[in-house]
């Protein structure tokens, strides 16, 4: 049974890239969101097994979205996707309950590995 993923990123390009990487590795991308608010809503609807979460996004940012999702579902598994130089935000996200992270630019295996770890 393939794990179901919600991909959150404000850049269409990144979403497409992540989607491709995940699909190639046998995951199923069940929903996408381009900002934090949307992410929370999609999470509620789709109840994915794992979320990839960008940090810098309009409306609600990734760290806030992590808090919001975990408030509603404390067992949510979230992997942060961060740009370089955002360590403080990643630390915040992990303290808030995110499970793992990758740093852009990343190669696909890194992301897949992080997701597998989060699902473990």
């Amino acid at each position: 049974m393939s794990a179901r993923v919600l991909v959150v990123d404000d850049a269409l390009f990144m979403r497409a890239m992540i989607r491709e990487a995940l699909t190639n590795s046998g995951f199923q991308v069940v929903a996408e969101a381009s900002n934090g608010e949307e992410a929370v809503a999609r999470y509620e609807e789709a109840k994915p097994d794992v979320v990839t979460m960008d940090i810098t996004m309009p409306q609600m940012d990734g760290v806030q979205a992590v808090r919001e999702i975990l408030r509603r579902d404390p067992s949510a598994r979230i992997v942060m996707v961060s740009a370089m130089g955002q360590q403080a935000l990643v630390v915040e996200a992990i303290q808030a309950g995110a499970r793992d992270f990758v740093v852009k630019p990343f190669d696909q295996t890194r992301l897949v590995e992080a997701i597998r770890r989060a699902l473990r």
Binding site: Q87, V90, V91, D100, F101, V103
Partner: peptide
């Protein structure tokens, strides 16, 4: 390893 602090915290979580 990029973002050592964040990585360390993620490992502690595991």
């Amino acid at each position: 390893c990029p973002m050592r602090a964040a990585r360390a915290l993620a490992l502690l979580r595991v």
